[in-house]
Amino acid sequence: MSFRHLVLVVAVTLGVAACSTPAEGPATPSAANGPHANVGSLHLPLPADATYTEHSPDGLLDGCIAEGTVVCEARIVDLRTAGADAPINLPSTKRPFGWYTGTDLPTCITPASPPGKAAEATGSELLDSGFAPIGPKKAEYGRWKVTCENSAQNNQIRMWWLPNSRILIVQYGSFPGWDAKMDALLARATFS
């Protein structure tokens, strides 16, 4: 990596960190000693080096969990409040882009292409579906293989949807190591 590229990566990372406002709120007993995300009734302790951005000035990083230089590894959205300004599609494994709640074409968000910088998705194939745990609850679960306008951004996306709580969790860029970490993270979730 060249010095110029390293400076650019550091500048972008610091710029994103400066433009986002991490969630503030009372720490739950399981998250008392570290970062956490409180979304609706969900309380999720995060890894020590992770951040949760409840709101960003441009709205692109709302609900994002980030670690290191990755701007948005996963997003947690409370759909009770998210659909107030615009129509949404409810999450479903019954449609190709089932994790995407917008009414336009989704973008291919990956560790290398955060929200706002990603190419449009051109296809989606459901690879796995069923139910998966989030703490004591079972969520509708799906994994999609997503193809993108820029083939370097092709990847897999995982989704957990709690219809009664109306909480959606989307993991961008499904990789074995991050999948195991995300599953362990969701296993520690609690609800109020």
Rank of each mutant, 00 (worst) to 15 (best):
M1C: 10
H5S: 15
L6Y: 10
V7D: 05
V7H: 11
V7C: 11
V7Y: 06
V7E: 12
V9Q: 14
A11G: 12
V12P: 01
L14D: 04
G15K: 02
V16M: 04
V16D: 01
V16T: 05
A17Y: 06
A17W: 03
A17T: 14
C19M: 14
C19A: 15
C19W: 15
C19R: 11
T21V: 14
G25L: 13
A27N: 09
A27G: 12
P29L: 05
P29I: 09
S30I: 12
S30R: 14
A31W: 09
N33K: 10
N33M: 11
H36C: 07
A37I: 08
N38M: 06
V39L: 01
G40T: 00
L42A: 05
L46N: 04
A48F: 10
A48T: 13
D49P: 10
D49Q: 11
D58I: 14
L61W: 03
D62F: 02
G63F: 08
I65F: 07
I65T: 05
E67Q: 13
G68P: 07
T69F: 05
V71F: 03
E73L: 10
V77K: 03
L79H: 01
L79T: 01
L79V: 00
R80Y: 09
T81E: 10
A82F: 04
G83Q: 01
G83I: 04
G83A: 09
G83M: 03
N89D: 04
P91N: 08
T93P: 14
T93C: 13
P96L: 05
P96I: 01
W99D: 01
T103P: 00
D104W: 05
C108I: 03
T110N: 01
P111D: 14
S113T: 12
P114D: 00
G116C: 04
A118T: 01
E120D: 09
T122G: 08
S124F: 06
S124A: 10
S124M: 09
E125H: 15
E125F: 09
A132Y: 05
P133S: 15
P133W: 11
I134R: 02
I134F: 06
G135K: 11
E140F: 02
E140A: 13
Y141H: 13
E149S: 10
N150E: 07
N150P: 06
Q153S: 01
N155T: 15
I157R: 06
M159R: 10
W160N: 13
W161L: 00
P163E: 09
S165D: 15
I167E: 05
V170T: 09
G173N: 11
F175K: 14
P176S: 14
G177P: 09
W178A: 15
W178V: 15
D179L: 04
K181S: 15
D183P: 13
A184D: 06
L186I: 11
L186K: 01
A189K: 03
A189V: 03
F191E: 04
S192R: 12
S192H: 11
S192K: 11
